[in-house]
Design a protein around this nucleic acid. Structure first.
Lengths: 125, 125
DNA sequence: ACAAGTATGCACCTTTTGGTAAGTATCAAA
DNA sequence: TTTGATACTTACCAAAAGGTGCATACTTGT
C-alpha cells in the first residue's frame, strides 16, 4: 500500500482539522483551564496535574504558534508570564464544553469501563 | 519528583474522563462516521482514510469494550460485520459535533497555521 | 548562607502509538 | 485457476510523544 502523504494535508472533514490542533496529551485540559481563568505558568502547571514542565511548555508553544493562545512576558524578575486565550482559542475552548459535560455525566460509567479495560489489557497485551 | 500513579485514576474533571475514552488517533473520526451511518468494517476503513487495519481494529475493540459501540457479526461467509453506536456512544459523538463545526469554520486558518508550524518544526526540531 | 520559588532549556531515555507486510478461511467473478 | 473481496491476526519495527533530572539567574524568606 502506498500511503499518499500530502505535503499540505487537506483535511477529510472539520473534525480532522480540529484534531490536528488539540492533539497532545494535555492541550484540551490547558484550554479548559485557561477558559476558566488561571493564567500564570505555575498555576497552569498545578492545575494540569501530573504534566511535566517539558511537555507543558512545549504544548503551550504549539498552541501559541497556532494562534490559540497568547503569551505575555512581564520581563520581571523573578519571571512572571501569563497565558490567555485568543478569540480563536476561546471559541475552540467553548467547543470543548460538551465533552466536559459528557465526561461529568458519564464519569461513573467511564471509570468502571476503563478499569475493566486495563485488567483486560493486562491479560491480552 | 514522584509522579504519584493512581491505580484507579480519579479524573481531575469531566473533560479528563472523556479524553481517556476518545484518545487514539482515529477514534473521534470513527465516532463521527458512525454517527452518520452505522456500518461495515470495509466502509469504515475507506471512510477513515489512511488508517491501517491493525489500528482500526484495535480502536474499534477498545471503543466496544468501553461501551461506545456495538459489533455485530453476521457469521456469514465472506465475513460480514457491522459497527454501530450504543446510546452512550451516540451521546459522545454528539458532543463532538461542535468540534466538527469549529474545524469547518476555521479550516483556512488552521491549515495556514499548521503549515507554518511544520516549517518552523523543521527549523527547530 | 541556604533553600525555595519563578519560567524555561536541554540531553537523554522509556513508553506509547502506529504502521507494514504477511497470513487465515471462504466464496465469487474473470 | 488465479485474483480479489471479506474481516480480521500476528510479528516486527519506526516514529512520536512524553518523562526525568539537571541547569539558569535572580529574589525572597529562614
Amino acid at each position: 500500500m502506498v500511503t499518499t502523504s500530502d505535503p499540505v494535508p487537506g483535511f477529510t472533514c472539520g473534525l480532522d482539522a480540529t484534531l490536528r490542533v488539540i492533539s497532545g496529551k494535555w492541550k484540551p485540559l490547558i484550554l479548559y483551564f485557561l477558559l476558566q481563568a488561571p493564567n500564570r505558568y505555575g498555576e497552569l502547571k498545578r492545575a494540569v496535574r501530573r504534566v511535566s514542565d517539558k511537555v507543558l511548555i512545549q504544548q503551550l508553544k504549539e498552541l501559541e504558534a497556532d494562534g490559540i493562545l497568547r503569551r505575555t512576558d512581564y520581563k520581571e524578575v523573578p519571571p512572571r508570564v501569563d497565558y490567555s486565550l485568543t478569540p480563536l482559542g476561546r471559541s475552540l475552548a467553548e467547543a470543548l464544553a460538551p465533552l466536559c459535560t459528557w465526561g461529568t455525566e458519564n464519569m461513573a460509567e467511564v471509570s468502571r469501563v476503563l478499569a475493566q479495560r486495563e485488567a483486560w489489557d493486562r491479560g491480552t497485551g
